[in-house]
């Protein structure tokens, strides 16, 4: 339940009860004893009740808001920037700078960007459809090895590659 709702409920109830109590007049037997005592007991009494509630609620929200445990846990983790190796492309190089905060990658910046103008020159290397039949007739020559989506050790046993390896 939300703190605002609980505090609202407690305060409104307390206000209603205290209001009614003071309007109705306290029990005569006690009232006679001392007016000062009556107010003395009621006010701190209600004060304790409300401050007790707000106090516990306050400490609860502090615990939730300040990330004390997480900052302790991540204290040993590194922060900073790190420059990566250069990846060369046909028209330029790409190099990245990695920013880490408490062991987590927070940012990656490109230091060297590929010259994208080279793209229009090379656009002729465009993959276009080819008929299966054209390839099938062309490919039937023997092969030395086989390339396919990665097979597992178990998958290997039934793969074409296994057949080739055995044949050799």
């Amino acid at each position: 339940m939300r703190t605002r709702a609980v505090l609202g409920g407690v305060f409104s109830s307390a206000a209603i009860l205290i209001g009614a109590w003071s309007l109705s007049g306290a029990p005569k037997a006690v009232h006679v004893a001392a007016a000062a005592t009556t107010t003395g007991t009621t006010t701190p009494g209600s004060g304790t009740a409300s401050s007790g509630t707000s106090g516990s609620a306050g400490s609860g929200s502090t615990g939730g808001a300040s990330p004390a445990p997480s900052s302790t846990a991540s204290a040993g983790k590194a922060s900073g920037t790190y420059t990566g190796s250069v990846v060369s492309t046909q028209y330029g190089n790409v190099q990245v700078q990695v920013t880490l905060s408490q062991g987590k990658i927070t940012d990656v910046t490109a230091l060297q960007l590929t010259d994208r103008e080279g793209r229009s020159v090379q656009i002729s290397n465009y993959a276009a459809p080819i008929l299966r039949q054209e390839v099938l007739t062309a490919q039937s020559a023997s092969v030395d090895t086989v390339s396919g989506a990665t097979y597992t050790s178990e998958g290997y046993l039934t793969s074409l590659q296994a057949a080739l390896d055995q044949a050799g």
Partner: peptide, 11 residues
């Protein structure tokens, strides 16, 4: 809704 529950009981 919560406040009304408390307040009506106090009321």
């Amino acid at each position: 809704a919560v406040v009304l529950c408390w307040a009506s009981t106090a009321g």
